[in-house]
């Protein structure tokens, strides 16, 4: 569903990604782990088009999308829930969710009707969001904002979802809840690329995993293979 081939990207003169390649099959949850600064988030940004890759290809459902605007890629079926959640603070929770489905809703009126089914699904997944539907999302706690960010990405009914550091800055209890959600989404058949600093937890939900080091993929394999790999074990799984 998503294929990344020899991707190069960076900020200004410094190249962060130096030939990253990976693939995410339909219905699979793929984890991308690695040290801080290895280029995980940059990979996500280069895939979704927030950062324009300088070289390489990104195929979404067989279609080359590298170099397109992020908004165009999003409308083609890629939902990227960014690091740091990036909810639209001044807007209400419900507005945030509706904007998640922006690409396929009528732009003026009657948009809520078109998204009601998805709204109900997200509220069912995160009942706390329903309680706070009218509240400005900037006033939510970190955990609630993370749920909103995931919910917002789901609203798009994406072909592939990128989820960047969903556990960042959250209390352990909330992190567990986030992972429960991911597991449930997996059962529902989501195609997901997950970047996560808690490598262990990430491997527990993943079907396949990549380990990044200095801008490229160093090791890949099934979670079991990685757990048996001594180097990965020592470096990331403690």
């Amino acid at each position: 569903m998503l294929i990344v081939d020899d991707l190069h990207a960076g900020y200004g003169a410094s190249e962060v990604l130096v030939g990253t390649s990976l693939a995410v099959k339909q219905g699979a949850v793929v984890a991308l782990i690695g040290a801080n600064g290895a280029g995980k988030t940059t990979t996500m940004r280069a895939i979704s088009g927030v950062l324009r890759p300088s070289h390489g290809r990104v195929l979404l459902d067989g279609k080359e999308v590298q170099g397109l605007d992020a908004s165009r890629i999003a409308r083609l079926g890629l939902a990227h829930s960014p690091e740091g959640r990036k909810v639209f603070g001044p807007l209400s929770v419900e507005d945030n969710l509706l904007l998640g489905a922006y690409g396929r809703l009528p732009k003026f009126l009657g948009f809520k009707a078109g998204a009601q089914a998805d709204l109900d699904r997200v509220y069912e997944l995160f009942p706390r969001l329903k309680d706070r539907a009218r509240q400005a999302s900037g006033t939510l706690s970190g955990g609630e904002q993370q749920m909103l960010a995931i919910g917002r990405a789901l609203m798009a009914r994406p072909k592939v979802m990128l989820l960047d550091e969903p556990s960042m800055g959250l209390a352990p209890v909330i992190v567990q809840e986030v992972f429960r959600t991911i597991r449930r989404l997996k059962e529902e058949g989501i195609t997901l690329l997950l970047v996560e600093q808690f490598a262990k937890s990430a491997l527990e939900v993943a079907d396949h995993a990549y380990v990044m080091e200095r801008g490229r993929i160093a090791v890949e394999g099934t979670p079991d293979e990685l757990r048996r790999n001594e180097r990965v074990l020592a470096a990331y799984l403690g």
């Binding site: 801080n36 352990p172 937890s201 080091e213 020592a234 470096a235 799984l237």
Partner: peptide, 20 residues
């Protein structure tokens, strides 16, 4: 261990092993 390191962090825990 629970919040950060993940289970049973050994003294050799390192995040930047060189790649063979």
């Amino acid at each position: 261990i629970e919040a950060y390191l993940g289970q049973a962090s050994g003294p050799e825990a390192s995040a930047a092993e060189p790649q063979p």
